[in-house]
Design a protein around this nucleic acid. Structure first.
Lengths: 101, 101
DNA sequence: GCCGAGTTGTCAACTATTGACAAATATAGA
DNA sequence: TCTATATTTGTCAATAGTTGACAACTCGGC
């Protein structure tokens, strides 16, 4: 599992001198669960990101970007054609974006 | 569900003048299932791609790339930060690639 | 040895996915 | 129009995967 996100929130938590047991309840989970999330052993739910950025006084967009990047990475890691696929996907994204506007 | 892949294999199948009922059994599925796959209503398994490219006489890499692009797109569609996330993910991919070599 | 912080392992409850089938809807030719 | 064939739609039980919760463990420092 990709884990730029987990590494970052651990970093932020330590910067704020917060303990797992202090943060976990705010996310409505127990300490082991948050520990696993920070180490990328368990997935984070999208809707938990704003809560986390609030608690850790971090930029919501930064965390969301890292989280998305992790999801993308999980799809293409181990794939020889990762870069090609990324190009195709990017084209699709920009096409759809244009069509909406 | 993203579906560049499905559209492409339908195109290929029709080019070869093959019917759903001819192709489906080769993939060990029934006709409705393949129909749904082609219309993006059901997911395709990674391991079915080589089989499909064999049947449809298509380039394995082309199909795999489309399939991966669909997976990526599913992750970031509806996300404002799609492009940023793609950039971060791409960086990670290339970093890891370098580390392996 | 004990305590606080974090980690590891397990498991039942829940959720989601799958494959399979029947039935409905095109499509085309006689 | 009737019929045959191709595709699509809808449903559902079985299975697989995920989740949350907890006990037990490790690792430091005191």
């Amino acid at each position: 599992m990709a884990n730029q996100f987990g590494v970052r929130i651990r970093q932020l938590r330590e910067q704020q001198n917060l303990l797992l047991r202090q943060v976990a309840p705010l996310l409505k989970m127990d300490t082991p669960m948050l520990s696993k999330i920070e180490r990328g052993e368990r997935p984070v739910k999208r809707e938990q990101i704003p809560v986390l950025s609030e608690i850790l006084k971090a930029d919501k967009n930064e965390l969301l970007t890292l989280w998305l990047a992790d999801q993308i990475y999980d799809v293409v890691k181990d794939e020889k054609l990762a870069n090609e696929a990324m190009q195709v996907a990017e084209k699709t994204i920009n096409l759809k974006k244009r069509n909406k506007k």
